Computed example of a mutant assay.
Amino acid sequence: MSDNYPNAAAECTSTPGENAVRLLLQPRDKDLGGFSVRRLLPTAQCKMVGPWIFFDHMGPADFPPGKGINVRPHPHINLATVTYLFEGEMLHRDSLGSLQAIVPGDINLMVAGRGIVHSERERPEVTAAAHRLHGLQLWLALPEADEEIEPAFHHYPGESIPTRTVDGVPLRVMMGSAYGATSPVKTFADTLYVEAHLRKGQRLSLPNAAERALYVVSGALKMEDTNLPEHAMAILSDGSNLVVEAEAESRIALIGGEPLGQRFIDWNFVSSRKERIEQARSDWREGRFPKVPGDEEEFIPLPG
């Protein structure tokens, strides 16, 4: 999705001492005309968690007939986008000619590499009736050696994502390896993305990674002496044996992985090089990016 709401930055709270939670991020909600987006990453205090550089929680948004998501074509470079829905459906188109509806449980991985353009809309059959959309959109920075690879699009049906039950907690290993399972979703660096659904009172030991963050999609949890309210993201300290306990029925998303070094972000562009971002801005302004087949008429102008 296009980063056309740059002021939706999260606020941070530090936690004292040797607490398992190093920072607690609280998002600012941004209303995009009946569609609520919560931005958690990046922030001034925490720009990345492992390779993850962008984290948006979309909705849940309820649309009347005739309304829905309608994101015009826009570009990306030097990153990969990950889209995952809890409810609803989105229609992905890109400049490679990909046309893919994503439904709950599926994972869409779009690798921008040297440059890609995509749009996110909904099928007429979906917008014809009242409907709801709810999900996560995340961006992964690519390692420097992979920033300029050929763009690609990968779709993973929900049944291909491994599931586990750990201490009674059902979970899915969306990317990377955890709990004895390895996701088929392509990665470019050590990457972790796990989703779990806890009942009140259940506890879950978290897998290790060089860097980790826990997002509370819904519900409320506790880790040691820190309360984790709904829609908060806990940036976790180093160390193993971190356990989270649900104080209400809760859905969580755990992200993490290896740090990749400094990245610059400007609009929809992420790169290790400022000059590469300036080139991408110029290319979009001058119409040098490829078109999206079937969606050639509209586009999002370069901000500013």
Results as ranks from 00 to 15, higher is better:
L192C: 04
G68N: 05
L302A: 09
H131I: 04
S237M: 12
E122I: 08
P170R: 10
I116W: 00
R39G: 09
E247A: 14
G115N: 11
P16Y: 08
S240I: 07
A44S: 08
P104Q: 02
D295H: 07
E249I: 14
H131Y: 03
V82I: 15
V49T: 08
A196T: 07
H197Y: 11
P170K: 06
T226G: 06
E297G: 10
N268D: 11
L41G: 03
A234E: 03
W139F: 14
D238T: 09
A129P: 04
P16D: 01
C12P: 13
S183R: 06
N4T: 03
Q26H: 14
N108L: 14
A130V: 00
M110L: 11
L204R: 01
R263E: 01
L25K: 05
L79A: 13
A10K: 01
E211M: 02
V185S: 12
I300C: 09
G201H: 04
T187M: 01
P6A: 14
I265M: 13
D295C: 07
E122N: 09
G294H: 11
P16T: 12
P229E: 03
L192W: 04
L204A: 09
L206D: 02
D94S: 06
M223P: 04
A248I: 12
P143M: 01
E224K: 15
G97V: 12
S160L: 12
P65N: 04
N70M: 12
G17A: 13
D295A: 07
G17N: 13
R199I: 02
A145R: 11
A232N: 03
Y156F: 10
V194C: 00
T83L: 11
I53Q: 02
V21Q: 08
E296T: 04
G115T: 01
P60L: 09
V243N: 14
F86V: 12
G257M: 03
F289K: 06
V270Q: 02
F63E: 05
M110C: 06
S95V: 15
P104S: 07
